[in-house]
Design a protein around this nucleic acid. Structure first.
Length: 827
RNA sequence: GCCGGGGUGGCGGAAUUGGCAGACGCAUCGGACUUAAAAUCCGAAGGGGUCCAUCCCCGUGUGGGUUCGAGCCCCACCCCCGGCACCA
């Protein structure tokens, strides 16, 4: 009798005792670093989504191991961060007590899942032995000028009472608590990831990643090419003191439309608003700016539901192309944190500017026109109507410039370049590339994170904590609640706050913000092979041998956050001479999402899947197999309790057939059909596992077992042994047990060799060939493999059904695909 | 609005990339075993048509096209899922 529960605990203990899953990192000949995204150890325990991802990664690792690689498969815990801290606040327990128990719970569940985890090398981001090096990385960036403190409008979550990265704001709401996010001006530490935007983009062309993930990163980086144009201030504002800016700079992707710029718009936070505003407009402008600051991002971005708002400053700037003075407005549809925070408005060719112009009665000029739409012999310097009533002109393909002085008649792209060059000669323009990507805000005004290792001295400014003083240990603070003032909880700890300046020794203050969780996860993979070293974050030789990561499997939800940041940090570490590679992951594949009974899995729906229960009832092998069988791994699938029966029965039958074969002692291959099926199956499963096509690999194994058992047949040892090896990646415990019963030395993962298929065994002497008449199936004939057309044709013409179809008509054409099909085309 | 991914039996999903649509599994039905049930084993099954058929028609979201042949390629459209979103 197959008793999965007994077998599984026995083998898990055996692996532990024998160090089966702990490769010798210094002796490995074919190192294969099999990485999965480490989990956040929530109090709820291991989520089925975690296990789905881990199982998929584990199967690949076990497969590589059976093929002879030295596979290193570590796991860790991403235990710092707002998520953990919020939960601690909710249950009113200190995170320093909560997290260790969560981790123990996770480890217990992970062990039960039968992963090939090397438990001797786990990582816990909240361990000072780990975050010492997180702080070290911060210091490396600081010293390289890549970490800087700047006053910036930041996303502030009033609920979590902290700054959020742009990535943590979902449609204006806090990713964690769904509160409306506000804007605040705070002094924050930033990593200059935008300096790396182009490289991060360029490398996407060659790294071996899921295409969808690469696309998501490209969109996130959001490169756009255009020009920076200068609009000189005119009127009173122009005359102000020396050293003051005398122009508004804008970024545009459409310099070709410059002649159509009939007004300008500044973001409410733009520094020039103050100067441009005339006295008679001042009260109105200030009211508008104040109101805009109060409006949270959700409201501000509800673009469909509200009309555009704005006020005229009373000031003017000169359109450098037309020489005309155009009014400067303030409106919240222009965002301070993209481009220059100011735009030239071209209402004739931009929907937003058009909407705005219509609303406030501003003039609209058409400056590009599709060739097709031009009337014959039109005067290109005087096309179409101008003024508020002129309709918005949609962007089309074959555009030329009109109403654009000497540039009229030029093709739009070339015209744009020409206009930029023309202005550049006068110092009024430069080609520019802009990125949507923002610098990475590292600071968090929270408790549960690694303290940022900086000391502020009145004389020496911001100083890095000397490396020999690391880690800056996060003190136990009884009251760790965040404050509404934006001051970090650590500031309450006087002993922590006070420090001596590392440069001059004077009394100084410690930075009390902690760093973003994404910094913890930005380098954790580098730590795994070097967990025993306390004097270096990652050992050069180990790193050289094991990195970049050979295979990384994880969720799409980290496409732009974790995956982009870890690429950035790796590039920086490469540039600073710490690692030899600049991309951290050789191969990344995203997995799909699990749903249940056709619906999303969520706590509120009450349809959460508890892996624990299923494993206790069916065993990990059955559960793993079902998870991988329910749909294509990279696309996800639908979990239905009823589906577990398939893999459950299959494993029972495998058990019965293999133990029966072992008892019978019969060997060899008596049946060529079965032998051919074996080789077909080996090929199928080998290719499918490599492609992470686990559902079809399992189907192939089932199919083969059906063949072995057809008509109550008893299989031979040689027929079942390869099957045991091939199901081992998916169902490792039963495979170990059956391998032992077939006389194999333990463990199967150390002693079995992945079976090879023999092409010559795949060929059949006779094939079934569909015969079509006019593309419709009319008969199936059996012919010798590779039979020439004449033979096939003759056999086909002997079929009664074919003869009937050919009666009275002439064969016009014969299409013969050898061994595949024959099609007779008749008139 | 933009960028991805998808739409195939009662259900989850296959389909060698243009060559027998529905592999494998779930559920279902029939049979065997059993006093009976469960478990197990054997078998059936996309829908429809004349009694059965090994015969015929229809069939991969919709409409058109290319082709000897389309689930797969092209054009237009509908719906679902995910991401981004006043990004100049």
């Amino acid at each position: 009798m197959y008793d999965p529960i007994a077998i599984e605990s026995r083998w898990q203990a055996w692996w532990e005792e024998n160090g089966t899953n702990e490769p010798d990192l210094d002796a490995a000949e074919r190192p294969f670093f099999n990485l999965m995204m480490y989990p956040y150890p929530s109090a709820e325990g291991l989520h089925v989504g975690n296990l789905y991802a881990f199982t998929g990664a584990d199967i690949y690792g076990r497969f590589r191991r059976l093929r002879g690689d030295d596979v290193f498969e570590p796991i860790g815990y991403d235990a710092f961060g707002i998520h953990s801290e919020n939960h601690a606040l909710k249950v009113d327990t200190h995170p320093m007590e909560l997290i260790p128990s969560n981790i123990r719970n996770f480890e217990r569940m992970l062990r039960a899942a039968g992963l090939m985890t090397d438990w001797s090398r786990t990582v816990d981001t909240t361990d000072p032995r780990y975050y010492k090096w997180t702080q070290w990385i911060f210091i490396q960036l600081f010293k390289a000028g890549l970490a800087e403190k700047k006053e910036a409008a930041v996303n502030w979550c009033p609920q979590c009472q902290t700054v959020l990265a742009n990535e943590q704001v979902i449609a204006g709401l806090c990713e964690r608590c769904d509160a409306a996010v506000e804007q605040r001006m705070l002094s924050q530490w930033f990593f200059r990831i935008t300096d790396y935007a182009q490289r991060l983009l360029d490398n996407l062309d060659w790294i071996d990643w899921s295409e969808t993930t690469k696309t998501a990163q490209r969109n996130w980086i959001g490169r756009s090419e255009g020009a920076r144009l200068h609009f000189p201030l005119s009127g009173a504002a122009a005359g102000e003191g020396a050293g003051q800016p005398d122009r508004i700079e804008v970024f545009t992707t459409r310099p070709d439309t410059l002649f159509g710029a009939t007004f300008m718009v500044l973001a409410p936070e733009h520094p020039l608003v103050e100067r441009l505003t005339t006295d008679e407009r001042r009260a109105e402008v200030e009211a508008y700016v104040r109101a805009a600051a109060a409006v949270d991002l959700v409201e501000r971005q509800k673009t469909d539901e509200r009309d555009k708002t704005g006020v005229f400053t009373g000031g003017y700037a000169r359109n450098p192309a037309t020489g005309e003075d155009i009014p400067v407005w303030v409106a919240d549809y222009v965002l301070m944190d993209y481009g220059t925070g100011a735009i030239m408005a071209v209402p004739g060719h931009d929907q937003r500017d058009f909407d705005f112009a219509r609303q406030f009665g501003l003039s609209i000029v058409q400056v590009v026109c599709s060739r097709a739409a031009l009337p014959e012999g039109a005067d290109l310097a005087d096309v179409g109507g101008a003024g508020p009533e002129a309709a918005f002109v949609e962007h089309t393909a074959d555009e030329i410039l009109v109403n654009s002085g000497r540039f009229s008649g030029m093709e739009a792209d070339a015209g744009g370049r020409a206009i930029t060059e023309w202005l550049a000669e006068r110092g009024l323009a430069a080609a520019e590339v802009n990125y949507r990507l923002h610098d990475w805000c590292i600071s968090r005004q929270r408790y549960w994170g690694p303290p940022i290792p900086i000391i502020y001295c009145d004389d020496c400014g911001a100083q890095a904590v000397p490396e020999e003083d690391l880690p800056v240990v996060l003190p136990y603070v009884e009251d760790f609640r965040p404050t509404a003032t934006g001051v970090s909880p650590l500031a309450r700890d006087g002993a922590f706050h006070a420090a001596a300046c590392p440069a001059c020794g004077a009394e100084a203050r410690r930075e009390t913000d902690v760093s973003d969780t994404f910094l913890d996860s930005g380098w954790y993979f580098l730590r795994y092979p070097s967990t025993e070293f306390d004097d270096r974050p990652f050992d050069p030789e180990r790193t050289q041998a094991w990195l970049p990561v050979s295979s990384y499997i994880g969720g799409e939800e980290h496409s732009v956050l974790h995956l982009l940041y870890s690429r950035f940090l790796t590039m920086v570490l490469h540039d600073l001479g710490h690692v030899e590679f600049e991309e951290p992951y050789d191969r990344f594949r995203k997995h799909g999402l699990l749903i249940r009974d056709g619906a999303k899995i969520s706590k509120s729906r009450g349809n959460v899947i508890l892996p624990d229960r299923y494993i206790a009832r069916f065993g990990a092998d059955t559960f793993r197999m079902y998870l991988m069988f329910l749909g294509p791994f990279q696309r996800g699938g639908d979990f239905r309790d009823s589906g577990l029966a398939g893999p459950e029965r299959f494993l029972k039958k495998v058990w019965d057939s293999v133990t029966a074969a072992a008892e019978s002692g019969r060997t060899g291959f008596e049946d060529v059909g079965v032998e051919r099926a074996l080789h077909t199956t080996i090929r199928q499963i080998s290719e499918d596992l490599e492609a992470l096509s686990y559902n079809t690999a399992i189907a192939a194994a089932m199919d083969y077992l059906n063949t072995l058992r057809a008509g109550g047949r008893t299989a031979t040892v040689d027929e079942v042994r390869p099957l045991v090896i091939m199901i081992a990646p998916v169902a490792p415990h039963i495979a170990e047990e059956l391998w032992a019963r077939l006389g194999g030395a333990s463990s199967i993962f150390d002693h079995a060799e992945w079976p090879a298929w023999d092409e010559s065994k795949l060929v059949v002497d006779e094939v079934e060939l569909p015969v079509q008449v006019n593309g419709r199936l009319r008969a199936t004939i059996r012919v010798a493999r590779g039979a020439p057309e004449e033979v096939v044709r003759e056999a086909a013409l002997a079929e009664a059904n074919v003869i009937r179809r050919l009666d009275g008509v002439a064969i016009r054409k014969v299409i013969h695909v050898p061994d595949r099909m024959l099609n007779l085309v008749v008139s």
